[in-house]
């Protein structure tokens, strides 16, 4: 029950885009067509759902103060937390690369669809942000996995919705200076107001 609650929270209420602005770059750049938005969204769900639990294990068994005691009790006072950023980003880059290879090998059709988006994901803020939030909020392994997948779905929901709006917007007469990024920002703000209505929902 707790986990379902957390999952729903991370999709709607603590939405990566509307509450924390993470992954904005690709959110704005890849939201011109619905089909590409779905591809990127699926890739983010996949990678975020994988990196959050893996980085949890790294944090718990390598980085945390006293985490290395499983090797030898002598390491009790060692605190490697200052390596957090480098470790996390290296693991994310490695997992993205690994996912790319696995997908290419076993499901070439999916690889064709995700293709160019997979490598881009390594520098999507929402992936690293997911791992950093997970540490900040002291999640357990199961919670980290649910949080990762949920945040990914929240991102996918937001980017597909925005892409649908922007496809319709092509036929409207927008002032020159506002075309493209400007109007997209304002639309995102309005969508944010809609998402605010989820605040206060407790399951």
């Amino acid at each position: 029950m707790e986990l379902i609650n957390l999952g729903i929270r991370s999709i709607f209420i603590d939405n990566m885009i509307f509450a924390y602005f993470l992954g904005m770059c690709s959110f704005l750049a890849v939201s011109k067509k619905v089909s590409t938005a779905i591809g990127l969204g699926a890739a983010v769900v996949f990678v975020l759902g994988l990196t959050a639990p893996v980085n949890w294990l790294v944090q718990e068994y390598i980085l945390k103060e006293g985490a290395l005691t499983w090797i030898s009790p002598a390491f009790e006072t060692i605190n490697l937390e200052f390596l957090q950023f480098i470790m996390f980003i290296a693991i994310i880059a490695a997992i993205v690369q690994l996912v790319e290879m696995v997908v290419e090998k076993f499901t070439p059709a999916l690889y064709g669809a995700l293709g160019i988006f997979l490598p881009l994901i390594a520098v999507n803020c929402s992936i690293l942000g997911g791992s950093l939030f997970m540490v900040q909020r002291d999640y357990t392994l199961a919670e980290a996995a649910v949080f990762g997948a949920g945040s990914g779905m929240g991102f996918m929901l937001a980017i597909v919705a925005l892409a649908a709006i922007r496809e319709k917007l092509k036929y409207s007469n927008v002032p020159d200076g506002l075309k493209g990024l400007g109007i997209t920002m304002l639309i995102t703000g309005l969508m944010g107001i809609a998402f605010k209505s989820f605040i206060g929902i407790v399951l």
Binding site: G180, G182, T184, G192
Partner: peptide
């Protein structure tokens, strides 16, 4: 203070700045 304000302020700032520089996105 909320995220919505950030989107709005940046959107309007972009509008003003692009109108001044004459940059148009297609």
């Amino acid at each position: 203070i909320d995220s919505i304000g950030a989107f709005m302020v940046l959107g309007i700032l972009i509008w003003i700045q692009r109108t001044k520089t004459g940059y148009v996105e297609h």
